[in-house]
């Protein structure tokens, strides 16, 4: 589903990603973890080209997205993203947030888009908030709407960039529960997270980044019980 080959990314002189190669299979749930500044968010943001890689290739469904000839807008329609700070459109209602891209980008009719949006809102328990503006929602509700907005495009892949880091502690669970319900339904998920419990329980694979290098790429069992690298051991000691 996603094939990453020798990915480098520099911001000016600062090299954030120093050659990452890996493959994410269809339907897989991958937790990307690591200390802050390790490059994990940048790594994720390269996967839908919100960051332009300096070097290397990223293939999504066999299409090289770093190739200038690839229509990235088309690819992005099938790669959803959920942000740490939600980035809901504040001037649109919850329902409009969910229907905007399906109508404007995919060409769905308003009725179709709304029907689908209401179903999605039903799944995250926010049907009654459909006509509210985002500013009236709690953080947890906003993030559930943001996940629904990504799902409304019917993506094959969803990228989660620290989806619970901006939430009050009591709201983390409701968002993780929604993500849990998505996992292993066929959708491919790449999740940058600090929620070790969630990574351990839900992920099929853990990628541990440190200093722009993919230090470990293994199963959660192995990573959490017997990390191979010294850096991963130190990280886990601090986290757990």
């Amino acid at each position: 589903m996603i094939k990453i080959d020798n990915l480098h990314k520099s911001f000016g002189k600062l090299e954030v990603l120093k050659g990452i190669s890996t493959t994410i299979k269809e339907g897989e749930v991958v937790a990307i973890i690591g200390p802050s500044g390790s490059g994990k968010s940048t790594f994720l943001r390269c996967m839908n080209l919100l960051e332009q890689p300096t070097e290397g290739k990223i293939l999504i469904k066999d299409q090289d997205i770093t190739d200038k000839k690839t229509n990235i807008m088309k690819i992005r329609q099938s790669v959803g993203m959920v942000f740490q700070h939600f980035h809901l459109f504040p001037h649109k209602t919850v329902l409009e947030n969910l229907t905007y891209a399906p109508i404007k980008v995919k060409g769905l009719s308003k009725a179709e888009a709304e029907k689908q949006a209401m179903e999605l809102l039903g799944k995250v328990g926010l049907t009654e908030k459909a006509n509210e503006y985002p500013n009236r929602l709690s953080g947890g509700q906003k993030q559930r709407v943001a996940i629904s907005r990504a799902l409304a495009m019917n993506p094959d892949i969803i990228l989660f960039d620290e989806p619970t880091s901006a939430l009050d502690p009591e709201m983390v669970k409701e968002v993780l529960d929604v993500m849990k319900s998505l996992a292993h339904t066929g959708i491919t998920m790449a999740i940058v997270t600090h929620e070790m419990g969630f990574a351990r329980e839900v992920a099929d694979r853990v990628m541990f980044l440190d200093g722009g290098i993919l230090v470990e790429d293994t199963t959660p069992e192995e990573f959490f019980s017997a990390p191979k690298s010294k850096r991963a051991k130190e990280f886990l000691e601090k986290m757990l």
């Binding site: 919100l50 790669v79 993203m81 942000f83 980035h87 459109f89 905007y100 404007k104 495009m153």
Partner: peptide, 24 residues
Amino acid sequence: GQNEAAMALGVPYARSMWDIILPQ
């Protein structure tokens, strides 16, 4: 982040400018 959210949904720049950024 507003523009990024629109881009991530596959919304072209001009559309996102007109529908998302300018109204705000």
